[in-house]
């Protein structure tokens, strides 16, 4: 009977994780490309974004987005607020990851691609990104696992995910050790397969090298 409620929560947790992961990858990729341009104001902007979001705890970010914005008149539902909050924080992290991945490649790669007649966008799409992908994969995998765990802070803004249901069950039944252990097991059951999947992806991209 506990398991059913927690499983409903697990579904929402995964939803938040996938949403935030999508936003974080999109932002991270975009910002990393901006950070590798030669335009100084753009690079400054990216640096500010990264520093601010990397140095503010996820919980604080969620509170600002959920409670803070509501005061100013922008009322978000808990789940979208959690997705946006975690996505923005993750975007800062992934910006650094992607930037490192792109800069690890020799700049001659891009120059050579442009020299054989590719447009800069084509060079990024067909030459830079496929190679950066391999470098970026391990940290990206680690990030998605820690993101799934970090969705637990969304319970603080009443997003109905695992931790939220766990707390509710505890206040109703007082079976504290059982419920939190079950919660731990559930996270374990979700994180281990992701870890395996990432390991397999890494092996495949290495074989392809």
């Amino acid at each position: 009977m506990f398991a059913a409620a927690l499983l409903a929560g697990a579904f929402v947790s995964i939803q938040i994780m996938l949403g935030a992961l999508g936003i974080a990858i999109a932002i991270g990729l975009f910002m990393a490309l901006l950070a590798t341009t030669r335009v100084v104001p753009l690079r400054l902007f990216v640096a500010c974004y990264v520093e601010v979001f990397r140095n503010v705890p996820a919980l604080t970010q969620l509170f600002i987005i959920y409670f803070g914005l509501a005061q100013v008149g922008l009322r978000l539902q808990p789940i979208p607020a959690a997705i946006i909050g975690l996505g923005l924080g993750g975007g800062a992290l992934l910006t650094e990851v992607f930037r490192a991945g792109i800069q690890a490649l020799h700049h001659g790669q891009r120059e050579a691609a442009v020299a054989v007649g590719m447009t800069p966008i084509m060079a990024i799409r067909y030459i830079i990104l496929p190679q950066a992908w391999r470098i970026v994969l391990p940290p990206l995998g680690n990030y998605s696992i820690s993101l799934l765990k970090e969705t637990s802070v969304a319970s603080a803004i009443a997003a109905p995910e695992i931790m939220f249901y766990a707390r509710q069950l505890v206040t109703r039944s007082f079976e504290t050790p059982v419920i939190y252990s079950l919660t731990a097991l559930l996270y374990l059951a979700m994180c281990l397969p992701i870890g395996r999947l990432v390991a397999r992806l890494e092996r495949r991209s290495r074989a392809w090298q």
Binding site: K149, T151, V153, P177, L188, C191, L192
Partner: peptide
């Protein structure tokens, strides 16, 4: 290590603070 890395910090804290009270 595997278990701890797969469990959110919040859950660990709740187990330690609330979970062992019945014991």
């Amino acid at each position: 290590i595997e278990i701890m890395r797969s469990i959110p910090t919040l859950v660990v804290l709740f187990i330690i603070y609330f979970g062992i009270v019945p014991l």
